[in-house]
Design a protein around this nucleic acid. Structure first.
Lengths: 202, 202
DNA sequence: GTCTATATTGTGATAGAC
DNA sequence: GTCTATCACAATATAGAC
């Protein structure tokens, strides 16, 4: 999607901000227009309907982290280098766009049937991401760990802390947002070691 | 909250189902009435406003997993027994109410300022849940692992797979919902060992 | 491209009959 | 407690002037 005019960009910027925060149904076209400082009817002029504007925002959100992940997956790094790189890529993306996890997961949860289509559109082949793991599983790095469970663990450890930001900040860091962010940055170094460690049998 | 009449129960049941699925703004009073098979104005009769109905559902959702967690935390089990029990409690709750994570996280994300108040209302003292960990940290079980990071890891590994259900099912289990559920059940045994393993230095 | 005016529908909420 | 009728308002969307 190419954003030609300045107005179009302002619309998308405001729409992203508000859709991320309040969701699709919780955000009105008027809200977006006000935030962008433009007339409400311009939203319809550029995007025809709220649905289409939302679609643009949703796809942009998916596009913010899928390509980064895909490129890591498709690189020919070995597992030992692959893991820290993947963790860092995910966490950096999350720090930059901390509201995306909930936004995307909420939409996919309300509309689970979208997943297959999205995967096709984004050119995601589940088998590609695994080939690397499966090769190395043969060589024994994974021990008895199921590759799928392993993958779930990595994603959980990287993404959940951002989806649960408010809870974690309040419950563990006494509401101190900076302490929370610091902790998230630490996880870039912490997680790879922890994950590797979890693979070796006790 | 005591649900006296049958009608009131039908309302709450439908409201839970729809609010979990579509969120507060995405669900209309008419939707709920239709789902419950009753007249729309009865919702106002019993709950006065949509806000108050939502509050009832939200508190019920919080109440579904907070007490279970709190009771585990406040028991005087030692860490080695505490961990599997905590993991099992969380995952069992998630299997029973898989939509609660996103529902709660989305609401708390849109409205982060609710967290402190909720913690007070539910009688959650952040220090209580940690006392157990901190005692044992002195005795060296945690090694150099930060207790807060550890806690984040446990919650991430237990909860995220449910928040990301549609993604995981599609990406890792070819859309096979039963395979997904089986994997979640396996995690009850898998995670405690993995987590303990991650604590020991390599 | 941007505005005003307007059409149309949906929404939350209440009053009052039964 | 449950219904019908009705309110005030907000929502998306379009037509048409400039």
């Amino acid at each position: 999607m190419v954003l030609s005019t300045e107005t179009e960009q302002k619309i998308v910027t405001s729409a992203e901000k508000l859709f991320y925060q309040k969701g699709k149904a919780g955000t009105s076209m008027q809200d977006i227009a006000d935030d962008a400082g433009i007339n409400r009817t311009l939203l319809n002029y550029y995007f025809r309907s709220k649905d289409q504007l939302f679609e643009a925002v949703f796809r942009k959100a998916m596009g913010r982290f899928v390509p980064g992940l895909a490129s890591v997956m498709q690189s020919d790094m070995r597992f030992s280098a692959y893991l820290p790189h993947m963790v860092e890529t995910i966490i950096d993306t999350m720090i930059e766009h901390p509201q995306i996890p909930i936004f995307v997961l909420q939409e996919l949860s309300s509309n689970p049937n979208r997943m297959p289509q999205i995967m096709r559109e984004m050119g995601i082949d589940p088998r590609v991401g695994f080939s690397k793991f499966e090769e190395e599983q043969v060589s024994g790095i994974f021990g008895r760990m199921d590759v799928r469970q392993f993958f779930i663990n990595v994603l959980s450890l990287c993404i959940f802390p951002f989806a649960a930001r408010s809870v974690i900040t309040e419950l563990l860091y006494n509401g101190d947002g900076e302490a929370y962010i610091d902790a998230m940055k630490q996880r870039k170094k912490l997680l790879p070691a922890l994950i590797m460690n979890s693979l070796t049998e006790k």
